[in-house]
């Protein structure tokens, strides 16, 4: 992946543009003058402690929340000017682990990603079924089409969610902690799939995550948020540093180079045993 400039045209090509966005609900200020630009075709992560406003930024992009001030643009157009259907064609969303009570079959669920391309009543998008199958193939879940979602493991459910988002055929993929609650193997699978998707399709990927090493390893560009503000931005290697992480999380980490790629990996700083468990 490497240089984040690789995919875009190199200069002003941004898929997502957030400028000076503030949002207050009641007396609490959720976002405070947030600006971020996401290069077309890049993999960009938003890091930050819980409550830093990361998910709220995603909600602004999805048009679920209207900022009190500022501008949100998707593919060069104000997000408010899109109809919901048009926005869905530009931008797909993968949530945190899907509620286990959802009992659609895998194929039905992925087909629901085709909403923006279908008509009303019983109209079924025939072409869409091919797209859905293709998406399932890409996440290696095509053998599971008739399984009910609630019978799948968390990792498998997440892969199906990714397939549903891919079936939406949008240029931008937005993910909210896609590997939270997954065991190491499952989250590794999800990460691998996403890297593959980014590599092969050139999608713009914007992810909110707590997984620092995943961000360090796979992402081109990183924004750090704290208390509703963007406090750090840059290449992953510029933001995921000892100082950067201390500023974001108020905790000391140690950064060591990955044995294969030399990318900086995050490990816990050795704890003072005397001060630790007492």
């Amino acid at each position: 992946m490497g240089d984040y400039l690789k995919a875009g045209s190199g200069d002003l090509e941004y898929s997502i543009l957030v400028e000076g966005v503030s949002l207050s609900i009641g007396r609490s200020r959720l976002l405070d003058d947030v600006s971020l630009k996401v290069k077309r075709g890049s993999m960009t992560a938003i890091l930050g402690a819980n409550g830093a406003g990361k998910t709220t930024v995603l909600k602004c992009l999805l048009g679920l929340v209207k900022p009190s001030s500022g501008r949100v643009e998707v593919n060069g157009r104000d997000v408010n000017l899109y109809s919901r259907v048009d926005l869905a064609r530009e931008l797909a969303y993968v949530p945190q682990l899907l509620n286990a009570s959802v009992s659609f079959t895998v194929l039905d669920f992925v087909m629901m990603g085709r909403y923006a391309y279908e008509g009303g009543f019983g109209y079924q998008d025939k072409e869409g079924e091919g797209v859905a199958m293709d998406a399932l193939q890409r996440v290696d879940m095509s053998k599971f089409i008739d399984r009910k979602l609630h019978t799948l493991s968390g990792g498998e459910r997440q892969k199906v969610c990714l397939a549903a988002a891919l079936a939406q055929e949008s240029e931008i993929l937005i993910l909210d902690e896609p590997s939270a609650h997954l065991d190491p193997r499952q989250s590794e699978e999800v990460h691998r799939l996403l890297a593959g998707v980014a590599e092969s399709s050139g999608l713009t990927i914007l992810t909110v995550t707590h997984d620092l090493n995943w961000a360090a390893m796979d992402y081109d560009y990183v924004f750090g948020m704290k208390d509703g503000r963007v406090v750090a931005e840059g290449l992953a290697s510029e933001v995921i540093t000892c100082d950067g992480l201390r500023a974001l999380f108020g905790v000391d980490f140690t950064i060591v180079p990955h044995p294969d790629t030399e990318r900086g990996m995050v490990v816990p700083t050795v704890r003072n045993r005397e001060g630790g468990i007492s």
Binding site: K59, L62, G63, L64, R84, A88, L91, A92, Y93, P95, L98, N99, V102, F104, F109, M112, G113, Y115, A116, Q168, I174
Partner: peptide
Amino acid sequence: VSDEIAASR
């Protein structure tokens, strides 16, 4: 499924 999923689709 969820309001967010519905809106994003």
